[in-house]
Amino acid sequence: MTTELSSQIVMQAKLDQLPKLERWVEALAAEFVLPSVLVHRIDLCVTELVTNLIGYGYPDGAIGTVSIHGWRQGEQVMIRIEDDGIPFDPTSYVPPGLPSSLADAAVGGRGIRLVRHFTDALHHVRTVEGNELTLIFRSPGAGAHSPAASAARESVSLDPAR
């Protein structure tokens, strides 16, 4: 499958780099001509994952490097996040259940739930350096968890033709 459009950012895993990430998503959205609903989903998921990585990916205090590559294939957008942090597979992480009352609600722990909710598929690979996580988004029209989206998961190529 031919990759139509491609964009990449390499950044340090530091909080002060997040505005740079936000600007990269904005530029990608303009270049790929993405609808605002999809842009929001991508923005939310990469923000959650990179924030998580900064907070927990480097317990030894090292400043890591994150490389994020986005590409579009037809109506699908792939975002691949590669890091050099400790192993973490969000596809096998089970988020806490939804709260039944305010008193019972956990204060935090909602980031990975959001990522799983707002992506159509997630693929994690443990690499020599760290983690490689690929997020797949379908353009609005087919819902995030619709049968069409499920079918699309089977046919998508995870290999960007660089």
Binding site: L102, A103, G108, R110
Partner: peptide, 19 residues
């Protein structure tokens, strides 16, 4: 314009305290 899980944490934490 945008809310991430860290923002939800602040809302929930304060709603619980207020309750």
């Amino acid at each position: 314009t945008f809310i991430a899980s860290i923002g939800i944490r602040t809302l929930v934490s304060n709603a619980k305290a207020q309750k």
